[in-house]
């Protein structure tokens, strides 16, 4: 198997353009929520803006986020908790009948009931407050509220960040985005519990620090090797482009880092054993695969003459 051709096909079957209808429903909903928030909070906020993987061009069609960041003004609420709770109450009031609204780590998730096509729209709203009065238009800095514990950050604490800078950090990095998408396909299809933001940062850091070149498999391999070689090292940092004091690697504890490295080693070893193993770690999105079945098993072209069990049959019980 030609690993690069396969991986390019994996990316192709996971492109967002494959789900344009669904995506436009998401966009419509996102605009509607933004409008509702703007008319509710008016002078208390600056213009809400888009974030999430779709905004960063790292989305894959089996798992993507369309987030809305709501920059609250410094004097809008006394505390970040009040801001968070107030927005939550508003969204419950507005959408509680048609959606499940829930508090998440730094955002409020809204999952709308399935529509007539069976599609569920899922939008996250991230409230943030400017750092000092009237500072936001220049700095774009925001304080985010931690509703739950995350890594070293306890619940009810907050973190300073700059989501605009985070989005810019990945701007025009097309090669990095491809590798990020592949690693996210691996994460999503194999139920790996890793933060996408961390995957983004470590991939970009790999490109910045080691020679990541060649075809897409060679690039992916270099990034995975970078992760396995570096994630467990002492003083390894992943600076949040939105706040250089925030080391995103701290969201992983020692065993998480060990696990991440082990996974990378495992993929590299198994693909080394047999490149066909790529198909397990980085599967095609079957919903958008080219239809090869007809060509493969078209009766008129078939060489099968007799009815025999397929050679790929599993055993262990049954007709014996």
């Amino acid at each position: 198997m030609e690993k690069s051709d396969y991986l390019l096909n994996v990316l192709e079957t996971h492109k967002m353009k494959k789900i344009e209808n669904l995506l436009s429903k998401y966009k419509d909903k996102r605009e509607e929520i933004k409008n509702e928030i703007e008319s509710e909070y008016q002078n208390k906020i600056y213009s809400p803006f888009n974030s999430g993987s779709y905004a960063k061009h790292t989305a894959i069609n089996c798992k993507f986020d369309l987030d809305i960041v709501v920059p609250f003004k410094k004097d809008s609420f006394n505390t970040l908790k009040e801001m968070f709770d107030n927005l939550y109450d508003f969204l419950i009031d507005k959408y509680g009948n048609d959606a499940i609204v829930r508090k998440q780590k730094v955002s409020i998730g809204i999952t709308f009931d399935s529509d007539e096509d069976g599609d569920e729209i899922d939008i996250d709203v991230v409230p943030g407050r400017e750092l000092t009065k009237d500072d936001y238009p220049d700095s774009r800095g925001l304080n985010l509220f931690f509703n739950e514990r995350m890594g070293l950050f306890s619940s009810n604490s907050y973190i300073k960040t700059n989501i605009n800078s985070q989005i810019k950090h990945i701007n025009k990095r097309e090669n990095e985005r491809k590798i990020i998408r592949l690693l996210k396909i691996w994460k999503y299809t194999n139920n790996e519990n890793l933060k996408s933001f961390l995957i983004e940062l470590i991939t970009i850091k790999a490109f910045d620090n080691v020679n990541v070149s060649g075809n897409i498999w060679e690039q992916l391999k270099s990034v995975m090797e970078y992760i396995k070689d570096n994630i467990r090292t002492e003083n390894f940092t992943l600076n949040d482009p939105g706040n250089s004091n925030n080391n995103v690697a701290d969201t992983l504890d020692e065993s998480d880092k060990e696990y991440f490295a082990e996974r990378m080693i495992n993929i590299l070893n198994r693909v080394e054993d047999d490149s066909e193993n790529l198909k397990f770690y980085f599967p095609l999105n079957k919903d958008f695969e080219e239809d090869e079945v007809e060509n493969k098993y078209n009766v008129k072209q078939s060489s099968y003459k007799n009815s025999v069990p397929p050679t790929n049959q599993r055993f262990g019980r049954g007709i014996e």
Partner: peptide, 29 residues
């Protein structure tokens, strides 16, 4: 499903020399 099928479809070299019990057609491993 994905893991097991990938093994049988793409990884393992499967031998098709099956045992055929006498009297009826139901080959087994």
């Amino acid at each position: 499903y994905r893991f097991v099928r990938n093994q049988f479809d793409n990884i393992l070299t499967v031998d098709d020399d099956l045992y055929e019990p006498i009297g009826y057609w139901s080959p087994t491993f």
